[in-house]
C-alpha cells in the first residue's frame, strides 16, 4: 500500500507523493515529477504502492500496465489507453476519464467512485469487486465484461451499455439510467432494490 503520509503544506490533507514531502498540487517540480511518472509507467509498465493525486494525464499508451495499491485520485485522464492492464487495490476516485480505453483489463478491489467517464470503453474486461459508485458516465460501454460484485450504486449512467455481461451481485441501487442496455446480461442477478436499506 502507498504510504499514508500527508502533504506538509499548511492545511493540506492530501497524501504526499511517494517519497516526497508534498502532494502534486504543492510540489515545486510538478513537471519533472509528472514526466518521471509517465516515463516509469510507459517503460516499466508496472507500478506498486505509489501515490500521485490531482494530476493530468494526456495521450498516454499504457497497454498492459500493472498497477498495484496505487492512488491517482482527483486526476484527469484524456486519451489514455489502459487496454489489457491489471489494476488491483488502486484508487482513482473523483477522477475524470475522457476518451479512455480499458478494454480487456482486469480490475480487482479498485475504486473509481465519484469519477466522470465520457466516451470510455471497458469491453471484454474482468472488473471484480470494484467500486464505480456515484460515477457520472456517458457514451461508454462495459460490454462482454464480468462485473461480479462491482458497485454502480448512486451512479448516473447515460447511454452506457452493459451487453452480455455477468452482473451477479453487481449493485445498481439508486442509479439513474438513461438509454442503458443490459441485453444478453443476467440483470436479474444484479441489485436494483435493497429492501433492508429503505
Amino acid at each position: 500500500m502507498f504510504d499514508f503520509i500527508r502533504c506538509d503544506h499548511a492545511q493540506c490533507d492530501n497524501f504526499s507523493i511517494t517519497n516526497r514531502d508534498k502532494c502534486y498540487l504543492h510540489a515545486a517540480d510538478k513537471e519533472f515529477l509528472h514526466q518521471q511518472l509517465v516515463h516509469s509507467l510507459t517503460t516499466k509498465k508496472e507500478l506498486g504502492s505509489f501515490c500521485l493525486t490531482h494530476s493530468p494525464f494526456v495521450d498516454l499508451e499504457l497497454t498492459g500496465c500493472k498497477l498495484y495499491a496505487c492512488k491517482f485520485s482527483h486526476s484527469t485522464f484524456t486519451n489514455v489507453n489502459f487496454n489489457k492492464s491489471y489494476i488491483q487495490l488502486s484508487f482513482f476516485e473523483f477522477s475524470t476519464f475522457i476518451n479512455c480505453t480499458f478494454e480487456n483489463i482486469t480490475s480487482k478491489y479498485s475504486v473509481f467512485a465519484g469519477s466522470v467517464f465520457e466516451n470510455c470503453s471497458f469491453s471484454g474486461s474482468d472488473i471484480l469487486h470494484s467500486n464505480f459508485g456515484g460515477i457520472d458516465a456517458a457514451n461508454s460501454n462495459f460490454d462482454d465484461s464480468d462485473l461480479y460484485f462491482t458497485n454502480f450504486s448512486n451512479s448516473k449512467l447515460n447511454s452506457v451499455s452493459f451487453k452480455d455481461c455477468n452482473l451477479k451481485k453487481t449493485d445498481f441501487y439508486l442509479s439513474e439510467r438513461n438509454e442503458v442496455s443490459f441485453k444478453y446480461s443476467n440483470f436479474e442477478e444484479a441489485t436494483f432494490i435493497r429492501e433492508d436499506q429503505q
Partner: peptide, 26 residues
Amino acid sequence: LNDKTLIFPGHGAPTTLCVEKKINPI
C-alpha cells in the same frame, strides 16, 4: 475522521470516507 480515510469493508468493494459521504444514501 479524515475524508481521505480508506475504507475496507467486510463485504464488497473498498471505498473512501469522502466517497461514502457523497454517495451513501444513509
